[in-house]
């Protein structure tokens, strides 16, 4: 351990604000990017699923599958 106490670790001999703000921004951005990418992946999968479900539901009755397809596509291609 390079520091004597926890408060010394936080203070970093006066360099604390610089070091910790860097680490905070790093964690926020990296974690944010990971979570955001995972959520978008989920959203795309859900979108595909909804579309396939709709197609299956409407294929027997021939009820405007085209319109629903274009609708989901617009939703999916957002980013």
């Amino acid at each position: 351990m390079a520091f004597d106490s926890f408060s010394a670790f936080i203070a970093m001999e006066g360099h604390g604000p610089y070091v910790w703000s860097c680490y905070a921004v790093f964690f926020i951005l990296v974690a944010g990017m990971m979570i955001w990418s995972a959520r978008r992946n989920r959203a795309v999968i859900e979108g595909c699923k909804r579309r396939f479900d709709q197609q299956q539901g409407t294929s027997g009755r021939d009820a405007r599958p085209k319109a629903s397809a274009t609708f989901t596509r617009v939703e999916v291609s957002q980013d």
Binding site: A2, F3, H15
Partner: peptide
């Protein structure tokens, strides 16, 4: 962050 020694010129930054 916690275990590496501080730099002799730049300190902890």
């Amino acid at each position: 962050l916690a275990f590496a020694p501080a730099d002799y010129l730049q300190g902890n930054s």
